[in-house]
Design a protein around this nucleic acid. Structure first.
Lengths: 354, 354
DNA sequence: CCTTAGCACTCATTAATTAAGAGTGCTAAC
DNA sequence: GTTAGCACTCTTAATTAATGAGTGCTAAGG
C-alpha cells in the first residue's frame, strides 16, 4: 500500500489535473505542467505501475489515465491538502450567516443554498428531527368548530404541528385540561419514549381526573397517533436540496440519461434519507463511488458532516458530486458551514472564531 | 379569426399529433391517420393557408408543420376537448387523498408529487400564506435561559414559528402576561393589519398594565419584528416542486443547455413566486409560450389554478411543460386535484362528489 | 539499473462525402 | 375545388478518411 514518493507525487498530479479538467491525463502533460524533473517516458512507466496497483484506469488503450475509486481514496486519505479558503470566500460565508433567520427551516434552506453555491455541487441537508429530543410543550389549539391544531415544541425549539378533528361536543376547557395533564406527563420525554406504556398511563390518569372520559380518551388517541405520524414524517420528509442543477454542469453528466438518473435520485426522499443516515457518526465522512451502498450513486461521491444543536448531533449536511470532486475545497467549505450552522441554530450570535 | 370547419379539423389533427409525437406533422400522415376524406394535396393547401394565418410554422422548407403559439391558443380556446380521466386514474387521485396527512406542508408536498406524476410534467405549488388571514393564537414559549419560540396560528390552522432572544431577566409570568395582552389585541387581525398603529397601541397598553415596562416593550418589538419577517418569508419562500426531472424526459429538452436553463429557473424561487402570483384570479389559467412574461419561459407553457381554504383563495398550483403540452389532460387532472386540495385543507373528509 | 529518446501502433474524435427519405410546392388534369 | 405527379429542398444517418493524442516497447545513454 505504500507508494514511493515519486509515485505519490505523480498520482497527486494526475488526480489534481483530472479534477480540474475532467479529461484523461497523459504523461506528456504531467511532465510539462508539474515539474517532477523526469521525462514523459519515466512518468509513463510509473503510470503503468500505478495502473497495475489499481490506482489508475485507462478508458481505452490510447487515452491518458483517470483515477480509479481506489485512487481517489488514497488521495483523500493521504494526499489531500485542505486548501485554505480565500479570505473573500470566508467572508462570503460569514456574511451569509450574519443576519440569521429566526426560523429553523429557513435557516437550513439557506444553508443548502450557500453550500451548493460555494462548491458548485449539489447539497443536501437533513433537518433536525424532533424525535430524539425532549418534548417541552404540547398544545391543543381549537380552530373553528371541529378541528384543532396540535403544536409540539421540543427542548431545542423545533416546532411541529398537525391538524386534528376534535371529538364532537368537546369544550375548550376540557381541551385545556387534557393538554395540561398530558403536558405534565410528557414534558421531558422524547417522542421515541412515547410508547404504549405511557399511553396506558395517561389513559388511566385522564379517567381519574376528568369527567366525560370518552371524549378525553378519544382526544388522547388522536394526539398519540399524531405523535406517531410525526416521528415517521420527521424521519422521512425533511430533506432540503440546494443547487440540484449543478449536477448538469459537470461534464460527466452531459449525457441526459445519466443526468436524469441522478436528478431522479434526488427526488426520491426515501433513498436520500437512507443515504444521509447510514454513515459515520462523527466528523466528515467521504464516500467515493462504489463505496456508496446505493447503486444509483456508484459513480458519485458524497461528502457529509453532522451538525449539532445544544450539544446533540441532530442533522447531516452533505455534498454530492462526481467522483472527480474537488474534495479539498468541499471539505473546507463544509467545515466552516457546519460550524456556523451549529452556532446559529443554538441561537448564539454567529461569529465563528477562527 | 374564424376558420372553416375543415381547417379547424386539420388544425386539431396536427396539434393532437404533434402533442403526441413531438415530430413535425406532414400532410400525408394527417390524410392517412385521421380520415378527413380528402387527399394529402388538399391538406397541403389547407396547411399552407393555416401557416399564412399564423397558426402553424415550418421548421424548415421540407419538414412538416408544427403549431405556433397562436395555434395552441386557438386549440386551447376552441378545440380542446377535456378528456375524461380513466376511472382508474380518478381512483388513483382519490386514493392518494384518502388517508390525508395532518400537516399542511406535507399535504402540499404530496400534492406536488401526484400532480407531476399524473401529468408527467413539472408541478409547482405555492403554499397558503399566513399573511392574509386572521390571527388566532400568538404564543411565547420559553426554551432554555434566554430564548423562546413564538408560535403564530391563524384561522385556517396554518402555523408559523420563530425563535427569539428573550430580554435578560424576564420571567415566565411576565411572558404570559405579555402574550395574553397581545392576544387580546391581535386576535382577528391579519398579519398585514399589524402595522405601526397597532404597535403604538400595544406599546401603550403594555405600559399601563405591566410593571417592568421596558422588558415588555423589548419583547413587543421582537414579536413585531418577527411578524414582519414572517410576512416577507411567506411571500418569498413557500414553493414546492414536484417532478422537476420530468422536464428532462421531454424531447424538446434533450439538449442539456436548454434543460439547465429551465431547471435553473425552477431553483429561483423569486422568479417562481412572480410567475405564480401575476395571473388571473379565478379558474384555470393557461399561459402559452410567449404569453409568459418571464423570458426564460417563452418556450414553455404553464397551466395554473388556485385553491382555497375556508372560502378564501390562498394558493396556486401549476403545471409547467413544453408548449406542446397535453392541455386537455392537464386541465382535467388539475381540476380534480384542486378540488381535493380545497376540501382536504379545509379539514373535511375528502370525498369528492363526482 | 534507472532514465530517456524514438517510433510504431491504437483508438477516439472530427470533418467530409454520400445516400436516403420525408415533405413541400407547383402544375396540370379531372 | 380537388387530386395525382414530379421536381426540388433540406435534414438525418451512414461511410469514409484524416487527425492527433497517448501509449508501449526497444534500444541507447548515464
Amino acid at each position: 500500500m505504500s507508494l514511493d514518493e515519486r509515485k505519490k507525487r505523480i498520482l497527486q498530479a494526475i488526480i489534481d489535473s483530472y479534477i480540474d479538467s475532467a479529461e484523461p491525463v497523459g504523461s506528456r502533460f504531467i511532465a510539462r505542467r508539474y515539474d517532477l524533473g523526469v521525462s514523459p517516458a519515466t512518468i509513463r512507466n510509473e503510470m503503468s505501475d500505478l495502473e497495475e496497483l489499481g490506482y489508475l484506469e485507462q478508458p481505452h488503450t490510447s487515452a491518458g489515465r483517470i483515477p480509479s475509486d481506489k485512487g481517489y481514496r488514497f488521495y483523500v486519505d493521504f494526499l489531500l491538502e485542505i486548501h485554505k479558503l480565500a479570505a473573500r470566500e470566508v467572508a462570503h460565508i460569514d456574511d451569509w450567516y450574519q443576519n440569521r433567520a429566526r426560523e429553523i427551516d429557513l435557516q437550513i434552506q439557506r444553508t443548502a443554498k450557500i453550500l451548493s453555491q460555494m462548491t458548485n455541487y449539489t447539497s443536501l441537508i437533513m433537518g433536525p428531527t424532533l424525535s430524539e429530543q425532549e418534548l417541552r410543550y404540547l398544545q391543543i389549539l381549537p380552530i373553528g368548530e371541529s378541528t384543532a391544531v396540535i403544536v409540539l415544541v421540543n427542548e431545542t425549539g423545533i416546532v411541529e404541528h398537525r391538524n386534528v378533528d376534535l371529538p364532537d361536543g368537546i369544550r375548550e376547557e376540557e381541551l385545556n385540561a387534557i393538554a395540561e395533564i398530558m403536558n405534565e406527563r410528557l414534558r421531558g420525554k422524547t417522542l421515541d419514549d412515547v410508547k404504549e406504556a405511557l399511553f396506558r398511563e395517561l389513559h388511566q390518569e385522564l379517567s381519574l381526573r376528568l369527567d366525560r372520559i370518552h371524549l378525553a380518551q378519544q382526544m388522547l388517541e388522536q394526539v398519540f397517533q399524531i405523535m406517531d405520524e410525526t416521528v415517521l414524517d420527521c424521519q422521512e420528509e425533511r430533506i432540503y436540496l440546494g443547487g440540484a442543477t449543478n449536477i448538469l454542469s459537470q461534464p460527466e453528466f452531459k449525457d441526459i440519461e445519466k443526468a436524469r438518473l441522478v436528478l431522479g435520485l434526488l427526488e426520491e426522499e426515501k433513498t436520500l434519507r437512507q443515504v444521509l443516515t447510514d454513515l459515520a457518526p462523527e466528523g466528515i465522512t467521504i464516500r467515493i463511488g462504489h463505496e456508496n451502498t446505493a447503486v444509483e450513486m456508484q459513480n458519485l461521491s458524497m461528502v457529509t458532516a453532522r451538525y449539532e444543536i445544544g450539544g446533540k448531533l441532530v442533522g447531516t449536511i452533505g455534498v454530492l458530486g462526481p467522483t472527480r470532486m474537488d474534495y479539498g475545497r468541499v471539505v473546507s467549505v463544509m467545515d466552516r458551514i457546519t460550524r456556523h450552522l451549529t452556532n446559529s441554530l443554538a441561537g448564539k450570535k454567529t461569529r465563528c472564531e477562527k
